[in-house]
Computed example of a mutant assay.
Amino acid sequence: MVNVYDPNNVSVIVDNIFVTGFAEGTMVSASKDEENFQTKTSAKGEVSVAKTNNPLGTVTITLSADSPHQRRLTQIANTGKMVPCWVNVSAPIKEKKGGSQAMIKKPADAEYSDEVGDREFEIQVFDYTDS
């Protein structure tokens, strides 16, 4: 069986708004901030494992400078509003990443040139889940 990836099957929802106007290339990335456990090995080869209980994750959204949602994300960043942030993939494999409590770290940096630029928003998710 052949699975076909289509970026139209990826949706990004911030503050209950379906974000559009992504830049070329990587639209969005999502990751847990730390590994689930850490290990140590003694001089004699005995292994200890410590579970990491850090629930933090990061979602990074890359928009085109002319995205209709660039201004709204900037407003959320400037107010420090706590918002839900989800990345959903509907096919070929269903995935849902993000959380119900997140904040945009800062407004996107801006560059101006002879091409339409990108605006990257980094979102800290305080209850990150990956399913």
Rank of each mutant, 00 (worst) to 15 (best):
T39G: 06
E95Y: 06
N53P: 01
R71V: 04
S11K: 09
Y5K: 12
D118A: 01
P107C: 04
N88S: 08
M1P: 15
G99I: 02
A65H: 05
S113E: 03
V4G: 14
T58I: 14
F37G: 04
E120V: 13
I61T: 09
S64E: 01
M103S: 06
K44V: 00
I93R: 10
V28L: 01
Y5T: 13
D33Y: 00
I61S: 11
T26E: 14
A102V: 07
E111K: 08
N88T: 11
M82Y: 12
N36E: 14
Q124D: 12
N8V: 07
S64Q: 01
T58G: 09
G57T: 11
T52N: 11
H69R: 02
A30F: 12
A110C: 08
K94N: 08
V10W: 05
C85F: 11
W86H: 15
S48W: 07
T26C: 04
D109K: 09
S11W: 01
N36G: 13
V116E: 04
A43R: 13
K81S: 12
S42Q: 08
M82L: 10
C85P: 10
K32T: 06
I61P: 07
N16Q: 07
Y5P: 07
A77I: 10
I104F: 02
Q101L: 10
K32P: 00
I104R: 11
T62K: 06
E34T: 15
E120Q: 10
P107G: 10
V125P: 05
S90L: 14
N53S: 01
E122I: 10
M27K: 09
T39I: 14
S113D: 04
A30I: 09
N78R: 15
P7Y: 15
D109S: 08
I104A: 04
F37T: 10
S48H: 08
A30L: 14
V59I: 15
V125I: 15
W86E: 13
S90P: 09
Y128I: 00
T26Y: 00
Y5F: 15
D6K: 09
P7T: 13
G45A: 05
N36C: 00
E35M: 10
Q75E: 09
D114F: 08
V28A: 03
Y128R: 02
K105W: 02
V116M: 07
G99D: 07
C85I: 14
T62L: 03
S31D: 03
V10N: 13
I17V: 13
C85E: 11
S90M: 14
I93H: 11
W86T: 13
F121L: 09
V28Y: 03
S100C: 07
K32F: 06
E122Y: 01
E34L: 12
P84D: 15
V12N: 09
F37L: 06
E46V: 13
R119E: 01
S29F: 14
